[in-house]
């Protein structure tokens, strides 16, 4: 049984169409004209217990709106959501005690007070038993090194420290499901890595279901197995990261440094994409040509000094998808 189920989810906004100029402004004030915009347009998916899912899409794709509907902040225009069998807006309180939410761009900590004050308050709000609270607090303190700044007012913390405290705060009550909204935004490489490690550890240890929205593909690649890509309010891809690489990244970049300059190099299924004297860069379509065959051919026929092979990066693939370079739906293309 899936933990999260979303069926034909739609969220519409009524937007007041603004006209230009002062006269236009007065006009829109007196005779408002509305336009319906579908921020989320018929989204369906389900997530199993313990899954870690990356939820990505360009700015304005509908990610935040979807997450806000899943967490019970927004009421959907139509469609059904079930979190552990409950509807988040009809059973708001029951669902709230099962989930945790981390907003990377906003803090839930009390700005002027030490971190521990917020934690104590949360213990009370979520009615966390003493033993469980202490156990989690010790565990998070150790893994995220929160004890070092536990008694400092939040306004004095660095962004990395604040984010760690925020993540701990939303997991103190052992939520079955945690939503991360850009959990590593603005952090340095080390801080990002530490948070990813923590998230992975908790998932393995407690079996917590997790959903990430992020723009950092490394977050997704290092933590999630599954990825949902959304654009213009609809899901354009839902599957494993491995598969997306396999389907859309079925090429290799081969960079060759020859002993001398060759002209008119041409192989079947290989495209020369860059030529700089002795250095040549090829894009090899693996459906037409195996990289090993190419290398064999190169080394046998030419004097080669150095060869490097690059896998396409997920980031490049996603960029291509956003920009329309890759079409996911074969029926349309």
């Amino acid at each position: 049984m899936a933990f999260i189920k979303s069926e034909n989810l739609v969220k519409e906004y009524k937007i007041n169409v603004k006209k230009k100029g002062l006269l236009g402004a007065i006009n829109s004030l007196l005779i408002p004209e509305y336009k319906i915009k579908k921020a989320v347009d018929n989204i369906s998916f389900s997530i199993e217990k313990g899954e870690m899912v990356g939820f990505i899409g360009p700015n304005g794709a509908g990610k935040s709106t979807t997450v806000k509907m899943l967490t019970g902040i927004l009421v959907p225009s139509s469609g059904e959501i079930s979190i552990g069998g409950l509807s988040p807006y009809k059973n708001r309180k029951a669902v709230a005690s099962k989930i945790g939410v981390v907003f990377g761009q906003r803090t839930q900590l009390w700005w002027d007070l030490p971190v521990i004050d917020t934690f104590d308050l949360l213990k009370f709000i979520y009615k966390i038993p003493d033993k469980e609270y202490k156990k989690n607090l010790d565990m998070f303190s150790e893994l995220l090194e929160i004890h070092k700044f536990m008694n400092q007012p939040v306004r004095q913390l660095s962004l990395g420290q604040r984010m760690r405290a925020d993540i701990a705060a939303s997991m103190l009550h052992n939520p079955e499901m945690v939503f991360f909204d850009e959990p590593t935004i603005g952090l340095d490489v080390v801080a990002k890595e530490r948070i990813r490690e923590f998230i992975k550890y908790i998932n393995a240890e407690k079996g917590t279901t997790m959903l990430f929205t992020t723009h950092d593909m490394q977050d997704i690649e290092k933590t999630c197995n599954r990825m949902i890509i959304i654009d213009n309010g609809t899901i354009i891809y839902d599957g494993s990261i491995h598969e997306i690489k396999h389907r859309f990244g079925n090429y290799r970049i081969v960079e060759v440094e020859f002993q001398k300059e060759y002209k008119n190099l041409s192989f079947a299924g290989v495209k020369l994409i860059n030529s700089d004297g002795n250095r040549k860069k090829f894009k090899v379509d693996q459906t037409l040509m195996q990289v090993t065959n190419l290398i064999n051919e190169l080394t046998q026929k030419y004097e080669v000094q150095d060869i490097t092979i690059q896998e396409p990066e997920i980031e490049q693939i996603i960029r291509d998808i956003y920009q329309g370079g890759i079409c996911l739906d074969k029926n349309v293309c």
Partner: peptide
């Protein structure tokens, strides 16, 4: 300030 979003995800009235 977004505080209301936070209130909505807490298990209290």
């Amino acid at each position: 300030s977004g505080e209301f979003d936070r209130l909505l995800i807490r298990p209290v009235g």
